[in-house]
Amino acid sequence: MIYLDFAATTPISETALEAYVKYAKSHFGNSKSLHDFGGDAEQLLNHCREILAKLINGDHEGIYFTSGGSESNILAIQSLLNGTEQAKKHIVTSTIEHSSIHNFLKNLQNNGYTVSFVRPDKHGRITINSLEKMIRNDTALVSIQHGNSEIGIIQNIEEIGSFLKEKAILFHSDCVQTFAKVPIDVEKMKIDALSFSSHKIYGPKGVGAVYIDPSVYWVPIIEGTTHEKGFRPGTINTPGIASFTIAAKSLHDEMKALQSQFTKLRKLFIELIAKEQLPIEVLGTPQSEQLPAIIGCIFKGIEGQYIMLECNRKGIAISTGSACQAGMQEPSRTVISLDRTKEEAAQYIRVSLGIGTTEEDILQLVEAFSQIREEYH
């Protein structure tokens, strides 16, 4: 079976797995316990905070551990909102955010907040001009993702961050798809808070983190919580966090080599579908603004779900979008936001590359696409 759904989740790396087993045995203490077992766990967690903060040029005091990307997004946004002026009840986000943010902000509309959804241009880019039109005097927070999970577009977070800093508006960015894969510098990007996840970077599932600039005021969601300085209740998953940290450091160190590898594989894919004259359109922009490992496509004339199931039958795993939206029959919100029809959105498929993906995998994928086209017609 060929796995080409790395944007949904990644297999845990051997080094991350070894670290989990090691620290599950040696640092099993509750980090809030006052004995030496607890002290050892707390010391390890602080070491992990320092490593992760360094990867984004942040302050280790701003790292808070969570159960994953979705929880990170929700906790970050709500904690920041809790710390803002009560009169500020307006939030701005994009129409192509991850479902965890989209659904949470929709729910906030029932709790006294107004949410404005900015649309991207036809390539998926959020422009300053379109964002500026949404800003109001009572805007408390803006949340714009760094890298889109369905088409791989990378937003100009540095430009957006500088604009919002001038307006004194809090800025959160979902960096789940970009953390340890492309450079992130919270100082240059002027990000007040960002979210990331372990299982997207070859770490264990059920682990993630939020970074909040220590100078930014926030208020806990649940009063009286002692773990993570009140940010999140519950005993900390120390071995999972250690494993996550090792996975992040390892992937970050290989960043340039991997992006080069994915760029070559992406180019090969585009060349092959052109050579085979397949009715496939690759979505996105030039690769300088793209995560090369995420290849969002429209397979014209055939529904994406059919393509995905047929590929699975032929031993290849791809997807029809975000795994968090799987099982929902609605067409991709991201593709619709690119001014595409519902019919086109229903023809969307996603190929996502990862460590271990080879040229042979791409050749077999394109061969499978050719067979599916012939069999369908």
Rank of each mutant, 00 (worst) to 15 (best):
L45S: 05
Y20H: 15
Q109L: 04
H146P: 01
S195H: 03
G234I: 08
I153W: 01
R333S: 14
E223T: 11
G39Q: 10
H146V: 11
G203Y: 03
G321A: 06
H199I: 12
S198Y: 03
L353A: 09
H60V: 07
I246M: 06
I316P: 03
T139P: 09
L309T: 12
F65V: 02
E85N: 14
S79T: 14
A326W: 06
G161M: 06
L108H: 12
S337D: 11
V182E: 10
K188P: 07
A248R: 08
S215D: 11
N110R: 11
Q287F: 12
S130G: 01
T139Y: 09
R232C: 09
T127D: 01
N312L: 11
L55D: 08
M255L: 15
L164M: 11
S322A: 15
V176K: 01
A24Y: 04
I169S: 07
H90P: 00
K267A: 14
S332N: 14
Y64L: 04
E150D: 15
A193V: 06
F196N: 03
E359P: 02
V115F: 11
G327T: 09
L309A: 14
D40E: 15
K267H: 12
L55R: 08
A24D: 11
A193N: 04
R333I: 08
F269D: 05
V186L: 12
Y64N: 01
G354N: 03
I307A: 03
A193I: 05
Q325I: 13
F262V: 02
I157N: 09
L291I: 13
F28K: 14
P214S: 12
T127K: 12
T263P: 00
P279L: 05
S322Y: 10
Y306G: 01
